[in-house]
Write a protein that binds this DNA or RNA. Structure first.
Lengths: 97, 97
DNA sequence: GTTATATTTGTCAATAGTTGACAAGTCAGT
DNA sequence: ACTGACTTGTCAACTATTGACAAATATAAC
């Protein structure tokens, strides 16, 4: 399973010596849920990503990129055609469509 | 919205002069639902993709690629960080992880 | 080894989203 | 206007997601 987002959040939280029970209330969720998000057992909601960025004092873009990558990975994981599908999407977004 | 899958299905169905009401029962769904899938108002379930391939006599891989691309596109559409996220996933799957 | 604190696990109700069916609608050709 | 092909709107049944809580398991200090 993909959990770049959770891994990075945990890294940042520990670097800043913050506890789950300190951070969770800032996100308006409880401690066990935050634990699950960091370990990738649950995924954060998109709206929560910017909250994480504020709390951990890191750019919203960085965390959002990781979060999106996790979501995409979940869709294509294990698929033989994954790479081709990704290429096709890349092309599509570059055309501004 | 992304609908490469539905567009291709419709193209194939019309080429083969098949009607919605002929194809739908083969998929064990009703005609209106098939119509919605082709127009991208609904998405086909993953299990249905191979059925489509059989019915329309095209490779499962082709349709699956389109279907996956649609799913991925739905996740990253409109996101500034879309391209970066895609790149990161590409890298990850190439590493065989 | 007991206590205190941090994190994890398991489970659950409430909510939200998806699926497929049906009835009724439009549209084109005749 | 009648017919055949497709589309639209709506709905109940089903499935997934969310967040809370209680309980379990570390981890650390004494």
């Amino acid at each position: 399973m993909a959990n770049q987002f959770g891994d990075r959040v945990r890294q940042l939280r520990e670097q800043q010596k913050l506890l789950l029970r300190q951070v969770a209330p800032m996100l308006e969720i409880d401690t066990p849920l935050l634990s699950k998000i960091e370990r990738g057992e649950r995924t954060a909601k998109k709206e929560q990503v910017s909250k994480f960025a504020e709390i951990l004092k890191v750019s919203k873009d960085e965390l959002l990129t990781l979060w999106l990558a996790d979501q995409v990975y979940d869709v294509i994981q294990g698929e033989d055609m994954a790479d081709e599908a990704l290429k096709s999407v890349s092309k599509k977004i570059k055309k501004g469509k």
